[in-house]
Amino acid sequence: MEREMITFVKVWLTAYASLFYCYVMGKLVPKGIPRLLGIAPIVILFLFLPLNLSSMHLGGATSFFLAWLANFKLLLFAFAKGPLSSDPSISPRRFVAVACLPIKIQPHQKPQNPQKPRKRGQKSLLNYSIKGLILALLVQAHRYYTHFMPKNLVLILYSFHIYLCLEIMLAIAAALARAVLGIELEPQFDEPYLSTSLQDFWGRRWNIMVTSILRPTVYEPVVNIATRVIGRKWASLPAVMGTFAVSAIMHELIFFYLGRLKSTWEITWFFVLHGACLTAEIGLKKAVAGKFRLPRIVSGPLTVGFVMVTGFWLFFPPLLRFQADVRAFEEYAAVGAFLKNVGSALTLKTMNATRLIMHISQL
């Protein structure tokens, strides 16, 4: 674990230096193909950097932040688009943070009035504290009781484990950026278990940062092309399928970083299936034009149930194949042992210092 931590620091120092280079390129090289050619080596480097890490948490977070988010933002930046180009006077420190972290700066930042209701997606410290407690209980349940549980119940617990782990990890990253940069950030999740449709789940509630980065890089270009062929009304349908196809490829890449196993393409089929179902849902909504709508009490369970069933069928098997759950719990245990050793060492040093002070005072 210590070697992994050292490698993790080296990888991120390399990433920070590379992003500073991109920042300078943005000041010196005009947008378009010249800037893209200058940034291309960094994009390639970010595809290889996660291969230096083997842990689930450090390696998984690094592959998501660098190989996916940072690379997509840099590709937009090459053409003066996206979050890295929204503020021409952006500082190097903020540029690096926005490039490699799953954060999106709110366009209009005003102090939050405590008497006003929170905006959609904004959450309190109590909300995250409860979720942190639930995550800790799930970890204990997985560690000691999974061999007593039915397989489907284990998968249900595992799905909540993944969601809570992702939300807390992304919230911590956003909180660090807020503390260092002094900026208000948009949340990354908005209670996806309350979704009432696939469009609501994927477009507004699940991993909002990915949605916001896929929209300008994939969805909008495909819409512009499709509009010329099939018209504006139906152009969103091929754009949705294109977006899910790219998301499938990126998830396959992330899973390769995590497991280093040959792909079985189950992840691709998961996103192709959801893309097709979401395309059908949007097409049906356009066809009925708001004349018919399922009640929330029906659409909510149907949506969440569909996501979980297809997840059990296609999404989780690759994770379990490279023992993601076992490796994750081993990492939790290693971190716990490390913190315990650090605490014991600090306690011993404090006791020795106290004894030395008492001895000196008695002289």
Rank of each mutant, 00 (worst) to 15 (best):
residue 113 N to C: 09
residue 78 A to P: 15
residue 110 K to M: 06
residue 121 G to H: 05
residue 96 V to G: 05
residue 80 A to V: 03
residue 113 N to L: 10
residue 124 S to W: 08
residue 111 P to Y: 01
residue 115 Q to W: 15
residue 108 H to N: 14
residue 112 Q to V: 02
residue 106 Q to A: 15
residue 111 P to T: 00
residue 122 Q to A: 08
residue 81 K to Q: 15
residue 88 P to N: 14
residue 92 P to Q: 13
residue 87 D to T: 11
residue 112 Q to E: 05
residue 122 Q to R: 05
residue 119 K to D: 08
residue 115 Q to T: 05
residue 108 H to T: 09
residue 79 F to D: 00
residue 119 K to G: 07
residue 82 G to M: 04
residue 117 P to C: 02
residue 108 H to F: 10
residue 108 H to E: 13
residue 100 C to Y: 00
residue 105 I to L: 14
residue 105 I to H: 06
residue 95 F to Q: 00
residue 86 S to K: 15
residue 91 S to H: 12
residue 92 P to D: 13
residue 93 R to G: 10
residue 114 P to M: 00
residue 80 A to K: 14
residue 119 K to I: 00
residue 90 I to K: 12
residue 82 G to H: 06
residue 85 S to W: 06
residue 121 G to Y: 05
residue 80 A to M: 01
residue 84 L to H: 05
residue 101 L to I: 07
residue 104 K to L: 09
residue 80 A to W: 02
residue 91 S to G: 10
residue 115 Q to G: 05
residue 96 V to H: 03
residue 91 S to K: 08
residue 93 R to Q: 14
residue 83 P to A: 04
residue 105 I to Y: 04
residue 79 F to C: 09
residue 94 R to T: 14
residue 81 K to P: 08
residue 99 A to E: 02
residue 121 G to P: 01
residue 106 Q to M: 09
residue 94 R to L: 15
residue 122 Q to T: 02
residue 86 S to I: 12
residue 81 K to F: 11
residue 98 V to A: 04
residue 87 D to S: 12
residue 116 K to C: 11
residue 93 R to V: 10
residue 89 S to F: 11
residue 82 G to Q: 04
residue 96 V to D: 09
residue 78 A to Y: 00
residue 114 P to Y: 07
residue 107 P to C: 07
residue 123 K to Q: 13
residue 117 P to E: 13
residue 93 R to L: 14
residue 88 P to W: 11
residue 120 R to Q: 11
residue 95 F to N: 01
residue 80 A to R: 08
residue 98 V to E: 10
residue 118 R to Y: 00
residue 84 L to R: 04
residue 110 K to N: 09
residue 102 P to Y: 04
residue 84 L to N: 10
residue 88 P to F: 06
residue 109 Q to K: 01
residue 79 F to G: 02
residue 94 R to Y: 02
residue 118 R to N: 08
residue 121 G to C: 05
residue 97 A to D: 12
residue 81 K to R: 15
residue 118 R to H: 02
residue 106 Q to W: 12
residue 91 S to Y: 13
